[in-house]
Design a protein around this nucleic acid. Structure first.
Length: 433
RNA sequence: GUGGCCGUAGCUCAAUAGGCAGAGCACCAGAUUGUGGAUCUGGCGGUUGUGGGUUCAAGUCCCAUCGGCCACCCCA
Protein backbone atom coordinates (compact mmCIF):
# COMPACT_ATOMS: atom_id res chain seq x y z
CA UNK A 1 0.00 0.00 0.00
CA UNK A 2 1.47 3.32 -0.94
CA UNK A 3 -0.95 5.90 0.40
CA UNK A 4 0.57 9.24 1.25
CA UNK A 5 1.63 9.05 4.88
CA UNK A 6 1.09 11.65 7.57
CA UNK A 7 3.97 14.11 7.94
CA UNK A 8 6.82 13.29 10.24
CA UNK A 9 6.14 14.06 13.87
CA UNK A 10 2.36 14.17 13.48
CA UNK A 11 -0.07 11.58 14.73
CA UNK A 12 -3.62 10.39 14.35
CA UNK A 13 -5.62 10.09 17.54
CA UNK A 14 -7.61 6.93 16.86
CA UNK A 15 -10.97 5.97 18.38
CA UNK A 16 -9.30 3.52 20.75
CA UNK A 17 -7.40 6.29 22.52
CA UNK A 18 -10.03 8.97 22.23
CA UNK A 19 -11.76 8.22 25.57
CA UNK A 20 -8.47 8.91 27.29
CA UNK A 21 -8.02 12.14 25.37
CA UNK A 22 -11.54 13.22 26.11
CA UNK A 23 -10.99 12.53 29.77
CA UNK A 24 -7.90 14.71 29.83
CA UNK A 25 -9.51 17.52 27.82
CA UNK A 26 -12.59 17.47 30.04
CA UNK A 27 -10.53 17.57 33.22
CA UNK A 28 -8.47 20.47 31.86
CA UNK A 29 -11.54 22.57 31.11
CA UNK A 30 -13.18 21.66 34.41
CA UNK A 31 -10.14 22.39 36.50
CA UNK A 32 -9.50 25.73 34.83
CA UNK A 33 -13.10 26.87 34.91
CA UNK A 34 -13.63 25.85 38.50
CA UNK A 35 -10.88 28.32 39.41
CA UNK A 36 -12.40 31.11 37.36
CA UNK A 37 -10.38 30.75 34.17
CA UNK A 38 -12.30 31.32 30.95
CA UNK A 39 -11.68 29.68 27.62
CA UNK A 40 -9.97 31.59 24.86
CA UNK A 41 -9.42 30.30 21.35
CA UNK A 42 -6.38 31.78 19.70
CA UNK A 43 -5.34 31.51 16.04
CA UNK A 44 -3.29 28.55 14.91
CA UNK A 45 -0.94 30.96 13.16
CA UNK A 46 0.15 34.49 13.91
CA UNK A 47 2.46 37.06 12.47
CA UNK A 48 5.97 35.73 12.81
CA UNK A 49 7.04 38.92 14.57
CA UNK A 50 4.77 38.15 17.53
CA UNK A 51 6.63 34.97 18.41
CA UNK A 52 10.00 36.44 17.55
CA UNK A 53 9.51 39.32 19.95
CA UNK A 54 7.95 37.18 22.65
CA UNK A 55 10.29 34.21 22.78
CA UNK A 56 13.45 35.99 21.68
CA UNK A 57 14.89 35.72 18.21
CA UNK A 58 17.76 33.50 19.15
CA UNK A 59 15.88 30.90 21.15
CA UNK A 60 15.43 27.39 19.84
CA UNK A 61 11.70 27.86 19.76
CA UNK A 62 12.13 30.71 17.26
CA UNK A 63 14.49 28.63 15.15
CA UNK A 64 12.09 25.70 15.11
CA UNK A 65 9.04 27.60 13.94
CA UNK A 66 7.08 26.67 10.86
CA UNK A 67 7.32 30.00 9.11
CA UNK A 68 5.91 30.84 5.70
CA UNK A 69 4.84 33.68 3.54
CA UNK A 70 1.21 33.74 2.48
CA UNK A 71 -0.06 34.84 -0.92
CA UNK A 72 -0.29 38.40 0.25
CA UNK A 73 3.36 38.41 1.27
CA UNK A 74 2.78 38.30 5.02
CA UNK A 75 5.29 36.52 7.23
CA UNK A 76 3.31 34.04 9.30
CA UNK A 77 4.19 31.21 11.68
CA UNK A 78 2.30 28.24 13.06
CA UNK A 79 2.16 28.86 16.78
CA UNK A 80 4.98 27.19 18.74
CA UNK A 81 3.30 28.09 22.06
CA UNK A 82 0.25 29.88 23.34
CA UNK A 83 1.31 32.54 25.80
CA UNK A 84 2.28 35.20 23.27
CA UNK A 85 -1.09 34.93 21.52
CA UNK A 86 -3.00 35.21 24.77
CA UNK A 87 -1.13 38.37 25.66
CA UNK A 88 -1.69 39.71 22.18
CA UNK A 89 -5.42 39.07 22.53
CA UNK A 90 -5.42 40.71 25.95
CA UNK A 91 -4.17 43.97 24.45
CA UNK A 92 -6.01 43.73 21.16
CA UNK A 93 -9.37 43.41 22.90
CA UNK A 94 -8.77 45.92 25.63
CA UNK A 95 -8.96 43.49 28.52
CA UNK A 96 -7.17 46.04 30.71
CA UNK A 97 -10.59 47.47 31.53
CA UNK A 98 -11.71 44.22 33.15
CA UNK A 99 -11.00 43.39 36.79
CA UNK A 100 -7.41 42.18 37.01
CA UNK A 101 -6.06 39.61 36.74
CA UNK A 102 -7.75 38.43 33.57
CA UNK A 103 -7.66 34.65 33.72
CA UNK A 104 -7.74 32.70 30.49
CA UNK A 105 -7.10 29.12 29.40
CA UNK A 106 -6.51 27.55 26.03
CA UNK A 107 -6.06 24.13 24.50
CA UNK A 108 -4.93 23.06 21.10
CA UNK A 109 -2.13 22.06 18.77
CA UNK A 110 1.32 23.66 18.79
CA UNK A 111 3.97 23.28 16.12
CA UNK A 112 7.73 23.00 16.31
CA UNK A 113 10.13 21.67 13.73
CA UNK A 114 11.99 19.23 15.95
CA UNK A 115 13.30 15.73 15.67
CA UNK A 116 10.48 13.50 16.92
CA UNK A 117 10.88 11.16 19.86
CA UNK A 118 8.54 9.53 22.32
CA UNK A 119 6.49 12.32 23.90
CA UNK A 120 7.90 14.82 21.44
CA UNK A 121 6.17 15.76 18.22
CA UNK A 122 6.19 18.38 15.53
CA UNK A 123 2.51 18.84 16.21
CA UNK A 124 1.63 18.39 19.84
CA UNK A 125 -1.16 19.61 22.08
CA UNK A 126 -1.01 21.93 25.03
CA UNK A 127 -3.32 23.06 27.74
CA UNK A 128 -2.36 26.36 29.30
CA UNK A 129 -3.63 28.87 31.82
CA UNK A 130 -2.63 32.52 31.95
CA UNK A 131 -3.40 35.16 34.57
CA UNK A 132 -2.62 38.61 33.23
CA UNK A 133 -2.51 41.92 35.04
CA UNK A 134 -1.38 41.07 38.55
CA UNK A 135 2.00 40.56 40.12
CA UNK A 136 0.56 39.01 43.27
CA UNK A 137 2.84 36.13 44.23
CA UNK A 138 -0.08 34.18 45.64
CA UNK A 139 -1.42 34.03 42.12
CA UNK A 140 1.71 32.08 41.19
CA UNK A 141 0.99 29.68 44.06
CA UNK A 142 -2.60 29.23 43.00
CA UNK A 143 -1.54 28.39 39.45
CA UNK A 144 0.84 25.73 40.68
CA UNK A 145 -2.02 24.34 42.72
CA UNK A 146 -4.29 24.42 39.67
CA UNK A 147 -1.75 22.58 37.56
CA UNK A 148 -1.27 19.98 40.28
CA UNK A 149 -5.02 19.50 40.63
CA UNK A 150 -5.32 18.98 36.90
CA UNK A 151 -2.71 16.23 36.99
CA UNK A 152 -4.36 14.62 39.98
CA UNK A 153 -7.74 14.59 38.29
CA UNK A 154 -6.08 12.87 35.32
CA UNK A 155 -4.73 10.12 37.63
CA UNK A 156 -1.09 10.78 36.84
CA UNK A 157 1.66 8.66 38.26
CA UNK A 158 3.66 10.38 41.02
CA UNK A 159 5.44 13.58 40.06
CA UNK A 160 7.50 16.23 41.77
CA UNK A 161 7.32 19.99 41.57
CA UNK A 162 10.46 22.07 41.19
CA UNK A 163 10.54 25.83 41.62
CA UNK A 164 13.06 28.61 41.34
CA UNK A 165 13.22 32.35 40.99
CA UNK A 166 15.40 33.87 38.34
CA UNK A 167 14.89 37.50 39.36
CA UNK A 168 13.76 40.41 37.29
CA UNK A 169 15.29 43.21 35.25
CA UNK A 170 16.48 44.87 38.44
CA UNK A 171 18.48 42.07 39.98
CA UNK A 172 19.15 39.67 37.15
CA UNK A 173 21.90 41.68 35.42
CA UNK A 174 23.98 41.75 38.57
CA UNK A 175 23.39 38.06 39.16
CA UNK A 176 24.37 37.28 35.59
CA UNK A 177 27.62 39.15 36.07
CA UNK A 178 28.56 37.12 39.12
CA UNK A 179 27.42 33.93 37.39
CA UNK A 180 29.49 34.65 34.29
CA UNK A 181 32.46 35.54 36.43
CA UNK A 182 32.16 32.23 38.25
CA UNK A 183 31.66 30.24 35.05
CA UNK A 184 34.62 31.84 33.34
CA UNK A 185 36.78 30.97 36.30
CA UNK A 186 35.76 27.32 35.90
CA UNK A 187 35.48 27.31 32.11
CA UNK A 188 38.29 24.79 31.85
CA UNK A 189 36.24 22.23 33.78
CA UNK A 190 33.09 22.67 31.70
CA UNK A 191 32.04 20.97 28.47
CA UNK A 192 32.41 22.67 25.10
CA UNK A 193 28.70 23.50 24.87
CA UNK A 194 28.79 25.18 28.24
CA UNK A 195 31.85 27.23 27.41
CA UNK A 196 30.06 28.64 24.40
CA UNK A 197 26.90 29.34 26.34
CA UNK A 198 28.72 31.29 29.03
CA UNK A 199 28.74 34.35 26.79
CA UNK A 200 25.58 33.73 24.77
CA UNK A 201 23.14 32.54 27.42
CA UNK A 202 24.74 31.99 30.82
CA UNK A 203 21.51 31.03 32.57
CA UNK A 204 21.15 28.07 30.25
CA UNK A 205 24.54 26.72 31.32
CA UNK A 206 22.91 25.83 34.62
CA UNK A 207 20.62 23.48 32.72
CA UNK A 208 23.50 21.40 31.33
CA UNK A 209 23.22 17.67 31.94
CA UNK A 210 26.77 16.63 31.11
CA UNK A 211 28.06 14.62 34.02
CA UNK A 212 31.42 16.34 34.33
CA UNK A 213 29.77 19.77 34.54
CA UNK A 214 27.57 18.87 37.50
CA UNK A 215 29.95 19.63 40.39
CA UNK A 216 30.76 23.07 39.02
CA UNK A 217 27.15 23.93 38.35
CA UNK A 218 25.91 22.62 41.68
CA UNK A 219 28.31 24.98 43.39
CA UNK A 220 27.46 27.92 41.10
CA UNK A 221 25.95 31.12 42.49
CA UNK A 222 22.21 30.88 42.96
CA UNK A 223 19.74 33.38 41.62
CA UNK A 224 17.56 32.99 44.71
CA UNK A 225 20.44 34.26 46.80
CA UNK A 226 20.87 37.35 44.63
CA UNK A 227 17.31 38.63 44.46
CA UNK A 228 16.51 42.31 44.88
CA UNK A 229 14.08 43.30 47.64
CA UNK A 230 11.07 43.16 45.35
CA UNK A 231 11.90 39.72 44.02
CA UNK A 232 12.82 38.44 47.47
CA UNK A 233 9.50 39.50 48.92
CA UNK A 234 7.72 37.98 45.93
CA UNK A 235 9.62 34.73 46.36
CA UNK A 236 8.90 34.53 50.08
CA UNK A 237 5.23 35.23 49.58
CA UNK A 238 5.03 32.59 46.82
CA UNK A 239 6.47 30.03 49.20
CA UNK A 240 4.10 31.11 51.91
CA UNK A 241 1.27 30.49 49.50
CA UNK A 242 2.56 27.04 48.63
CA UNK A 243 2.88 26.16 52.28
CA UNK A 244 -0.66 27.22 53.05
CA UNK A 245 -1.86 25.07 50.15
CA UNK A 246 0.17 22.11 51.36
CA UNK A 247 2.15 21.94 48.16
CA UNK A 248 5.52 20.30 48.40
CA UNK A 249 7.69 22.08 45.86
CA UNK A 250 11.45 21.60 45.88
CA UNK A 251 13.83 24.44 45.20
CA UNK A 252 15.91 23.68 42.15
CA UNK A 253 18.42 26.52 41.91
CA UNK A 254 19.41 25.31 38.45
CA UNK A 255 15.92 25.38 37.00
CA UNK A 256 15.70 27.84 34.13
CA UNK A 257 13.19 27.85 31.33
CA UNK A 258 13.74 27.93 27.62
CA UNK A 259 12.01 31.15 26.71
CA UNK A 260 13.51 34.57 27.28
CA UNK A 261 10.42 36.21 28.68
CA UNK A 262 10.41 34.55 32.09
CA UNK A 263 10.99 36.64 35.21
CA UNK A 264 10.93 35.75 38.86
CA UNK A 265 9.00 32.52 39.39
CA UNK A 266 9.64 29.45 37.26
CA UNK A 267 8.41 25.93 37.93
CA UNK A 268 8.28 22.50 36.38
CA UNK A 269 6.40 19.25 36.96
CA UNK A 270 8.60 16.20 36.50
CA UNK A 271 7.72 12.49 36.81
CA UNK A 272 9.18 10.77 39.83
CA UNK A 273 10.40 7.77 37.86
CA UNK A 274 11.56 7.27 34.32
CA UNK A 275 12.76 10.81 34.03
CA UNK A 276 14.64 11.22 30.78
CA UNK A 277 15.64 14.51 29.23
CA UNK A 278 12.36 15.41 27.57
CA UNK A 279 10.17 14.13 30.37
CA UNK A 280 8.95 17.44 31.77
CA UNK A 281 5.17 17.16 31.88
CA UNK A 282 4.54 20.85 32.07
CA UNK A 283 5.96 24.04 33.41
CA UNK A 284 5.15 27.61 34.04
CA UNK A 285 6.35 30.86 35.37
CA UNK A 286 5.98 34.58 35.53
CA UNK A 287 6.56 36.82 32.55
CA UNK A 288 6.43 40.40 33.64
CA UNK A 289 8.58 41.43 30.66
CA UNK A 290 6.56 39.76 27.92
CA UNK A 291 3.94 42.47 27.47
CA UNK A 292 6.46 45.10 26.53
CA UNK A 293 8.32 42.72 24.28
CA UNK A 294 5.27 42.42 22.04
CA UNK A 295 4.55 46.14 22.13
CA UNK A 296 2.07 46.39 24.98
CA UNK A 297 2.15 48.53 28.07
CA UNK A 298 3.99 47.05 31.06
CA UNK A 299 1.70 44.29 32.30
CA UNK A 300 2.62 41.44 34.59
CA UNK A 301 1.51 37.90 33.87
CA UNK A 302 1.91 34.37 35.12
CA UNK A 303 0.85 31.03 33.73
CA UNK A 304 1.71 27.49 32.83
CA UNK A 305 1.37 25.18 29.92
CA UNK A 306 1.41 21.43 29.81
CA UNK A 307 1.89 18.96 27.00
CA UNK A 308 -1.15 16.75 26.71
CA UNK A 309 0.75 13.92 25.04
CA UNK A 310 3.02 13.94 28.08
CA UNK A 311 0.06 13.90 30.40
CA UNK A 312 -1.19 10.85 28.52
CA UNK A 313 2.22 9.19 28.85
CA UNK A 314 2.06 9.66 32.60
CA UNK A 315 -1.46 8.43 33.25
CA UNK A 316 -1.42 5.30 35.33
CA UNK A 317 -2.02 2.19 33.26
CA UNK A 318 -4.82 0.75 35.35
CA UNK A 319 -6.77 3.97 35.11
CA UNK A 320 -6.30 4.12 31.34
CA UNK A 321 -7.43 0.51 31.06
CA UNK A 322 -10.75 1.13 32.76
CA UNK A 323 -11.84 3.72 30.20
CA UNK A 324 -14.03 2.02 27.64
CA UNK A 325 -14.71 3.04 24.11
CA UNK A 326 -17.76 5.06 23.24
CA UNK A 327 -20.85 2.88 23.07
CA UNK A 328 -24.42 2.87 21.83
CA UNK A 329 -27.55 1.72 23.64
CA UNK A 330 -29.19 -0.08 20.78
CA UNK A 331 -27.97 -1.80 17.66
CA UNK A 332 -30.41 -2.52 14.84
CA UNK A 333 -29.71 -5.67 12.82
CA UNK A 334 -31.56 -6.69 9.67
CA UNK A 335 -31.79 -9.41 7.01
CA UNK A 336 -32.70 -8.49 3.49
CA UNK A 337 -32.96 -5.30 1.46
CA UNK A 338 -36.48 -4.53 2.57
CA UNK A 339 -35.65 -5.08 6.23
CA UNK A 340 -32.69 -2.70 5.97
CA UNK A 341 -35.01 0.11 4.94
CA UNK A 342 -37.18 -0.62 7.97
CA UNK A 343 -34.05 -0.70 10.15
CA UNK A 344 -33.09 2.75 8.89
CA UNK A 345 -36.54 4.09 9.72
CA UNK A 346 -36.56 2.48 13.15
CA UNK A 347 -33.08 3.74 13.96
CA UNK A 348 -34.24 7.27 13.27
CA UNK A 349 -37.25 6.76 15.52
CA UNK A 350 -35.12 5.44 18.38
CA UNK A 351 -32.70 8.34 18.01
CA UNK A 352 -35.59 10.76 18.31
CA UNK A 353 -36.57 9.05 21.55
CA UNK A 354 -33.15 9.96 22.96
CA UNK A 355 -31.40 6.63 22.59
CA UNK A 356 -27.95 6.21 21.14
CA UNK A 357 -28.39 3.93 18.19
CA UNK A 358 -26.32 2.36 15.47
CA UNK A 359 -27.33 -0.10 12.78
CA UNK A 360 -25.67 -2.52 10.39
CA UNK A 361 -25.21 -1.61 6.78
CA UNK A 362 -24.88 -3.97 3.86
CA UNK A 363 -25.74 -7.61 3.50
CA UNK A 364 -24.04 -9.41 6.38
CA UNK A 365 -24.84 -12.47 8.41
CA UNK A 366 -26.90 -12.00 11.52
CA UNK A 367 -24.09 -13.59 13.48
CA UNK A 368 -21.66 -10.93 12.40
CA UNK A 369 -24.19 -8.19 13.08
CA UNK A 370 -24.63 -9.55 16.61
CA UNK A 371 -20.88 -9.53 17.04
CA UNK A 372 -20.73 -5.95 15.92
CA UNK A 373 -23.50 -5.02 18.35
CA UNK A 374 -21.57 -6.64 21.15
CA UNK A 375 -18.39 -4.88 20.12
CA UNK A 376 -20.12 -1.51 20.08
CA UNK A 377 -21.24 -2.04 23.64
CA UNK A 378 -24.93 -2.16 22.79
CA UNK A 379 -27.33 -3.21 25.51
CA UNK A 380 -30.14 -4.13 23.14
CA UNK A 381 -30.27 -5.53 19.64
CA UNK A 382 -33.33 -5.00 17.49
CA UNK A 383 -33.60 -7.66 14.77
CA UNK A 384 -35.69 -7.22 11.67
CA UNK A 385 -35.89 -10.16 9.27
CA UNK A 386 -38.37 -11.84 6.96
CA UNK A 387 -40.47 -13.21 9.81
CA UNK A 388 -40.73 -9.88 11.53
CA UNK A 389 -41.35 -7.99 8.33
CA UNK A 390 -44.33 -10.18 7.52
CA UNK A 391 -45.80 -9.43 10.92
CA UNK A 392 -44.65 -5.79 10.93
CA UNK A 393 -42.75 -6.48 14.11
CA UNK A 394 -39.18 -6.63 15.43
CA UNK A 395 -37.35 -8.88 17.86
CA UNK A 396 -35.66 -7.11 20.76
CA UNK A 397 -32.84 -8.97 22.43
CA UNK A 398 -31.25 -7.94 25.71
CA UNK A 399 -27.56 -8.73 25.34
CA UNK A 400 -26.99 -8.95 29.07
CA UNK A 401 -29.71 -11.45 29.89
CA UNK A 402 -30.13 -13.07 26.50
CA UNK A 403 -33.87 -12.68 26.81
CA UNK A 404 -35.77 -11.56 23.76
CA UNK A 405 -39.27 -10.65 22.73
CA UNK A 406 -41.07 -9.75 19.53
CA UNK A 407 -43.13 -6.58 19.40
CA UNK A 408 -44.94 -4.77 16.60
CA UNK A 409 -43.14 -1.81 15.02
CA UNK A 410 -45.36 0.71 16.78
CA UNK A 411 -44.20 -0.57 20.17
CA UNK A 412 -40.46 -1.00 19.53
CA UNK A 413 -39.38 2.41 20.81
CA UNK A 414 -41.56 2.20 23.88
CA UNK A 415 -40.40 -1.29 24.75
CA UNK A 416 -36.74 -0.53 24.08
CA UNK A 417 -36.66 2.62 26.21
CA UNK A 418 -38.44 0.76 28.99
CA UNK A 419 -35.84 -2.03 28.86
CA UNK A 420 -33.01 0.50 28.97
CA UNK A 421 -34.57 2.21 31.95
CA UNK A 422 -32.43 5.00 33.27
CA UNK A 423 -29.16 3.36 32.30
CA UNK A 424 -28.33 4.94 29.03
CA UNK A 425 -24.81 6.01 29.85
CA UNK A 426 -21.84 4.38 28.23
CA UNK A 427 -18.74 3.30 30.14
CA UNK A 428 -16.79 6.07 28.38
CA UNK A 429 -18.91 8.93 29.57
CA UNK A 430 -19.10 8.18 33.27
CA UNK A 431 -15.35 8.44 33.68
CA UNK A 432 -15.45 11.17 36.26
CA UNK A 433 -14.11 9.70 39.49
C1' G B 1 20.99 19.84 13.73
C1' U B 2 24.56 15.32 15.78
C1' G B 3 25.16 10.02 17.02
C1' G B 4 23.07 4.94 17.62
C1' C B 5 19.17 0.90 17.06
C1' C B 6 15.11 -0.65 14.01
C1' G B 7 11.24 -0.98 9.61
C1' U B 8 7.88 -8.26 7.12
C1' A B 9 -0.39 -8.56 6.49
C1' G B 10 -4.74 -3.53 9.82
C1' C B 11 -2.10 -5.19 14.93
C1' U B 12 1.80 -8.47 17.60
C1' C B 13 5.68 -11.16 15.55
C1' A B 14 8.24 -15.74 12.79
C1' A B 15 11.31 -17.06 8.34
C1' U B 16 17.94 -22.22 9.55
C1' A B 17 24.18 -20.17 6.25
C1' G B 18 21.44 -15.45 0.65
C1' G B 19 17.32 -20.65 -1.46
C1' C B 20 9.13 -21.32 -2.59
C1' A B 21 7.13 -15.00 2.43
C1' G B 22 4.43 -17.64 7.43
C1' A B 23 1.52 -17.78 12.34
C1' G B 24 -1.70 -15.65 16.04
C1' C B 25 -5.22 -11.63 16.70
C1' A B 26 -8.79 -8.79 13.85
C1' C B 27 -12.25 -8.96 9.63
C1' C B 28 -15.62 -12.01 6.26
C1' A B 29 -18.09 -16.79 5.46
C1' G B 30 -19.51 -21.63 7.13
C1' A B 31 -20.21 -25.64 10.96
C1' U B 32 -25.71 -23.84 13.60
C1' U B 33 -32.47 -22.55 7.45
C1' G B 34 -32.02 -16.09 11.50
C1' U B 35 -28.81 -14.71 17.13
C1' G B 36 -23.06 -11.78 20.53
C1' G B 37 -19.15 -12.59 24.37
C1' A B 38 -16.84 -20.25 23.66
C1' U B 39 -14.87 -23.85 19.92
C1' C B 40 -13.64 -25.73 14.98
C1' U B 41 -13.06 -25.11 9.46
C1' G B 42 -12.20 -22.06 5.33
C1' G B 43 -11.44 -17.22 3.05
C1' C B 44 -9.71 -12.11 2.47
C1' G B 45 -5.29 -9.63 3.35
C1' G B 46 2.08 -8.45 1.13
C1' U B 47 5.77 -4.76 -4.75
C1' U B 48 9.08 -7.52 3.04
C1' G B 49 8.83 1.31 4.11
C1' U B 50 10.74 3.34 -0.80
C1' G B 51 14.59 3.55 -4.76
C1' G B 52 19.02 1.71 -6.56
C1' G B 53 23.19 -2.00 -6.34
C1' U B 54 25.79 -7.04 -5.60
C1' U B 55 24.18 -12.19 -6.87
C1' C B 56 22.00 -17.77 -10.74
C1' A B 57 18.93 -16.24 -6.48
C1' A B 58 17.93 -10.70 -1.59
C1' G B 59 13.04 -10.13 3.86
C1' U B 60 18.34 -11.45 4.66
C1' C B 61 24.37 -8.28 2.01
C1' C B 62 25.81 -2.87 0.25
C1' C B 63 24.32 2.44 -0.80
C1' A B 64 20.70 6.18 -0.67
C1' U B 65 16.09 7.91 1.01
C1' C B 66 11.62 8.08 4.11
C1' G B 67 9.66 6.79 8.82
C1' G B 68 9.79 5.04 14.10
C1' C B 69 12.53 4.55 18.64
C1' C B 70 16.84 5.95 21.90
C1' A B 71 20.66 9.41 23.46
C1' C B 72 22.27 14.50 22.64
C1' C B 73 20.17 19.48 21.82
C1' C B 74 15.88 21.57 23.61
C1' C B 75 11.23 21.81 25.18
C1' A B 76 5.58 20.48 26.43
Amino acid sequence: MTVIASPRGTQDILPASWPLWRHVLDRAAETAESSGYERIEIPTFEQTALFMHATGEHTDVAREMYTFEDRGGERLSLRPEGTASVFRAYFQHGMRVQPQPVKLYYMGPMFRYERPQAGRFREHHQFGCEAIGSEDALLDSSLIRLQRDFYRSCHLRPFTIQINSIGDTECRPAFLRTLVEYLRKHAGELCADCRQRIERNPLRVLDCKVESCQPILDAAPRAVNALCDGCRNHWNRLREGLEVLGIDAALNPRLVRGLDYYTRTVWEFVPEVGGSAQSTIGGGGRYDALAQAIGGSPTPGVGFSTGLERVLLNISDDFAAQLGRSAVDIFVAHLGLEAEVEALRLTGELLCAGCRVDMAFGNRSLKSQMKQADGRGARLVVVIGDNELALRSATIRDLRTGEQQTVVFENVTETATALLGGQRTSPASNDAP
